[in-house]
């Protein structure tokens, strides 16, 4: 539904977004993941026509955003929940958006209810909102026009754990009804649980994309297992004898093999295992590794 085609945005010599192409499909939540300053927000601003691209294009369902009549009815956008007049009440902000889109006033109350803002809270001015309340209002704003596509920049930012869980189920249901969701985050854990598909971006470039299983599957070559047994010495000898690398780690061993291979060696060596798990790369390792050149705290970071 969202098609980003060879998008590049440069500021002078600096490429904030560098030849980025990807697609977001209906019925799926696509996570847009990357460290701060990786180019996520710039990409999303280009999507909705707020930033002119240097090269490339973005279309939503084959249409350029700027060509969509009354775009709020088709694409729900939350780029920055605080980008509203601080002196307006939450309800007034939604009211103005509803007026612009030509929606009845009840829609405002419905959406306030959906995001869990009470009537009292909705009558407070935005400057008195907590970050979490502002974020909920922003989500209500994005959902107001009953759009088919949602573009959300860091929507979980400022939400408490219960709020994040609420948002997760909200977006899941939305996608299950056929909606297209693109949401960005710099926190892997947030995205990992919601996203059907992930796009990893670092230094303005896509470094990996795919679903969680596919991303992890690519790491099989370096599989490691963590194992603890009643006789670590005997197990270690047997594993080394089978040709696997073995290192002591904590109370147990770290082995350069899959859990299945370790289990088979233990069976034949007749050692009782008390703990056996996958010690291989987690999604987080992958994320950090792939985006490490973009990490501010990486050592000797060069591109």
């Amino acid at each position: 539904m969202i098609t980003v085609d060879h998008l590049t945005k440069t500021y002078g010599a600096f490429a904030a977004v560098d030849d980025v192409s990807f697609q977001c499909r209906p019925g799926r939540v696509t996570g847009f993941l990357g460290p701060n300053g990786a180019g996520k927000s710039t990409t999303m601003r280009v999507m909705v026509g707020l930033t002119p691209p240097t090269r490339g294009s973005v279309t939503i369902g084959g249409v350029k955003y700027a060509d969509i009549p009354n775009p709020g009815r088709h694409v729900g956008v939350l780029l920055d929940a605080s980008a509203q007049h601080k002196g307006r009440t939450g309800r007034e902000i939604l009211r103005l958006a509803a007026m612009t889109m030509g929606l009845p006033g009840q829609r405002v109350d419905q959406m306030l209810e959906v995001v869990g803002l009470t009537p009292t809270e909705s009558k407070r001015r935005l400057r008195n909102y907590s970050l979490g309340m502002m974020q909920r209002l922003g989500i209500a704003h994005a959902l107001l026009g009953d759009p088919q596509v949602l573009i959300l920049d860091e929507p979980a930012n400022g939400l408490d754990p219960a709020g994040i869980r609420w948002m997760r189920s909200l977006l899941k249901e939305y996608a299950d009804r056929g909606g297209t969701v693109l949401l960005s985050s710099h926190l892997l854990n947030e995205v990992e649980l919601i996203a059907d598909e992930m796009i990893l971006i670092g230094q303005g470039r896509i470094v990996a994309h795919g679903d969680k299983a596919a991303l992890l599957a690519s790491r099989r070559g370096t599989a490691t297992s963590l194992v603890t047994s009643l006789d670590n010495h005997a197990l270690g000898t047997a594993l080394a004898g089978a040709g696997f690398g073995v290192q002591p780690r904590g109370h147990g061993l770290q082995v350069g093999a899959t859990t299945e291979q370790v289990g088979r060696v233990a069976l034949s060596a007749q050692v009782v295992l008390t703990d056996l798990r996958d010690g291989g790369a987690t999604l987080e390792d992958l994320f950090l590794e792939l985006t490490s050149t973009a990490q501010r705290d990486a050592i000797g970071a060069t591109s």
Binding site: E197, V207, H209, G210, L215, S292
Partner: peptide, 8 residues
């Protein structure tokens, strides 16, 4: 969808 992760 296929994945294309790479070494940094």
């Amino acid at each position: 969808m296929t994945s294309t992760p790479l070494t940094p």
